[in-house]
Design a protein around this nucleic acid. Structure first.
Lengths: 242, 242
DNA sequence: CGAAACGTTGATATCCTTCAACATGAGTGG
DNA sequence: CCACTCATGTTGAAGGATATCAACGTTTCG
C-alpha cells in the first residue's frame, strides 16, 4: 500500500501544522519510501551506523538500551506521528535500539535530504526540534517515575500517559484503546521485576481502575487513576502550538 | 565582566565547530546579555511561561522535576557548553526546573531571534538539534541507571559519566576535577535515599575508587570504576563530529 | 559562638526481587 | 485432531536490597 503525503492521515488529527502546498511538496520530496514491518522487528539496532530518520505512520514501537548482562531498560514508547531515530542520525552510531511493538508502517526520511531541507524550510527545522523536545519530555517523565514513584504509582502513571497520548490520536473510544504491551515491557519500562509488575497490575485491577481484553485496555476510572499516579499538573503538549 | 562571542573560551575546547566570521557575527547578534548568577539560583522555574534559551558559559547546573509531595528527581546535570531551556522554549511552559549548582555565567539567547536565525543559518539549526539530542542521550543513560542498575553501579556510573564530561572540557587534571554535588543531589539523580547514597559512596571509597577533598573528586582507578558501573560500550559523543 | 547545611553510622522496617511452580493460550508438526 | 512447545500470565514463599528512623559528627559561615 503506497500512501501519499498529500492525504497523510496523520495530518487529519491536527498533528502537524497547517502547511502550504509548496511546503508539502518539499516534504514529499525527501520521503523515500513507505516501509511495512511486522511486530518484533528491529527498526534501529544498537550501534547501527548512520541510520535514517523515520516517521512512525502506524503502529507502536519502543526505544531501549541494554546492559552487557542482558538487563533491558525501555526508554520510551513511540506512537503514530513520532519521529524515530533523530538522535541516532545526529551521531555516528545509534546509542539505543528501536523495536516494533505491533506491525508498523514507516515513512523513511533520508537524513542527508532532511538536513538539506532545513535550509529551505526553517519551519521544518523547528518542527523537528519540537518533536525531539517532546520525545525528551516523555523520557523525563519516565525517569521521574522510575526514580521517585512507588511501583503502584509508576504503573498508574504509565497507563495514564499512554491513555492520554492515544486519546490525542483519536485512538480511544469508550475509554478503550489498543494496548500491545506485555507485562515484561511494562516491567522493563518501569524498572520493576516481572513478578512485581504482575502483582501491581492485579492490585490496580482489583481496585477497579481498568480491565484488559485481548489486547485492549479500558480505563474504568481515569480520574482516580491519575490521582493514584501522582500525575504532573504541567503536561507534555501533544501537538505543535503554532 | 563582559565576554565577547569572538573570543568565547568554549570554542577553544573544540566544543563548537569552526565557523566563519560571518556566522559568528550572526550568533553574536542574537546574544543579548551575559548573566551571572550565584549557586542555588533558579534559572528556570517549573511552569515558567516562555523562558529564554541560555548557553551555560561557566559553572554547573541541574534540571529536575518535582512530585506534588516534594519528592524530587534530578533529570540531568548541565556543564559548560550545554544549552539550557531549549525544551521549555519550545512549549509554552517549562515542564522542569533548572537550578545553578555553582555560580554560573549564562549567555542569553532570546528565542524569537534564535528561531529567526534558523532560516539564515541552517547549520545552526543542526547544531541546536545536535545539542538537544545529546541532552536526551544523557537522560537516557540516567534512566537506564535508575531503572536497571544496582545502587553501587548507579553511583559508579554517575561519577564516571561526570568525569568523562569534565575531561572533554579540559576540567580534569591528575584525575581530579571540581565536584559540586552534595550527596542529596546524587540521591535525587539516582532515585536513592540519602542514607543509602552515603553508604554506597563510602563503600566505593573504601574500595579505593576515589577520594573527595573540599569540593573536588579524584578518581584513583577509573578503569575499574567504569567496570563496576557496567558502563556502556557506545558512548555519547562529547562534541559535534563535523 | 551558634546555627544551619552537610555527612556518617547503626538498627529496624518494608518494598521489591528472586525462586519455583503452575495456568493459559496460540502456533506447529505429527 | 492431538501432543507439544513457547510465550505470556498468575500465585505463594523466602530473601535481599534499599528505605526509614534516630542520633551524632563535621564543616561552614554569619
Amino acid at each position: 500500500m503506497q500512501v501519499s503525503c498529500y492525504d497523510c492521515k496523520l495530518r487529519a488529527y491536527g498533528l502537524f501544522k497547517r502547511i502550504s502546498a509548496e511546503e508539502l511538496d518539499s516534504i514529499r520530496e525527501i520521503k523515500r519510501e513507505h516501509l511495512q514491518l511486522p511486530a518484533g522487528s528491529e527498526i534501529i539496532r544498537i550501534g547501527d551506523a548512520a541510520p535514517e530518520v523515520f516517521t512512525l505512520y502506524a503502529g507502536w514501537a519502543f526505544r531501549y538500551k541494554m546492559l552487557s548482562d542482558g538487563r533491558r531498560q525501555i526508554l520510551s514508547f513511540l506512537l503514530p506521528g513520532d519521529l524515530l531515530g533523530l538522535q541516532a542520525a545526529m551521531f555516528d552510531a545509534a546509542l539505543f535500539g528501536i523495536e516494533a511493538l505491533t506491525d508498523v508502517q514507516l515513512c523513511v526520511l533520508p537524513r542527508k535530504r532532511l538536513w538539506t531541507l532545513f535550509g529551505k524550510m526553517p519551519d521544518l527545522a523547528f518542527d523537528v526540534a519540537w518533536l525531539g523536545s517532546r520525545s525528551e519530555s516523555f523520557v523525563d517523565e519516565n525517569l521521574t517515575s522510575v526514580g521517585r514513584r512507588t511501583a503502584t504509582e509508576r504503573v498508574a502513571a504509565l497507563i495514564v500517559t499512554l491513555y492520554k497520548r492515544a486519546k490525542a490520536l483519536a485512538m480511544v473510544e469508550d475509554e478503550t484503546f489498543a494496548f500491545p504491551l506485555t507485562q515484561q515491557h511494562i516491567a522493563d519500562a518501569l524498572g520493576l521485576s516481572l513478578v512485581h509488575t504482575n502483582k501491581t497490575l492485579a492490585r490496580l485491577k482489583r481496585m477497579g481502575m481498568f480491565k484488559q481484553n485481548n489486547g485492549t485496555m479500558t480505563l474504568l476510572n481515569p480520574r482516580i487513576l491519575e490521582r493514584v499516579a501522582q500525575h504532573f499538573d504541567e503536561e507534555v503538549p501533544m501537538r505543535p502550538l503554532i
